[in-house]
């Protein structure tokens, strides 16, 4: 399986599709509630001047996640434009 790539790894300006979420517990639910459900598309749009967090375009809204949180979200970049 091609699933070692996380949301934190994809470069700014590129897109990916979520395959799974690694975190368990309440944070998992928070990520899901934000619209980070498997199958949905995410665009990495900009990084903070200090390098962390990164802002993503998720279902019509810009949401910033710290890189350590974003690394809990596994993505697939194939077939996403």
């Amino acid at each position: 399986m091609h699933s070692s790539l996380s949301l934190a790894d994809i470069p700014v300006g590129s897109s990916a599709r979520i395959t799974s979420i690694v975190t368990i517990g309440p944070n998992r639910r928070r990520l899901l509630d934000l619209g980070l459900v498997p199958g949905s598309r995410v665009d990495s749009i900009r990084r903070s001047p200090a390098g962390n967090p990164t802002a993503y375009w998720i279902k019509g809204t810009v949401i910033a996640l710290r890189n350590e949180d974003a690394s809990q979200i596994l993505v697939d970049t194939r077939g996403v434009f």
Binding site: N27, R30, L65, R66
Partner: peptide, 11 residues
């Protein structure tokens, strides 16, 4: 450890 943090950047 720092907890999970989400920040919405509204238009």
């Amino acid at each position: 450890v720092p907890s999970f943090f989400v920040l919405e950047l509204p238009p």
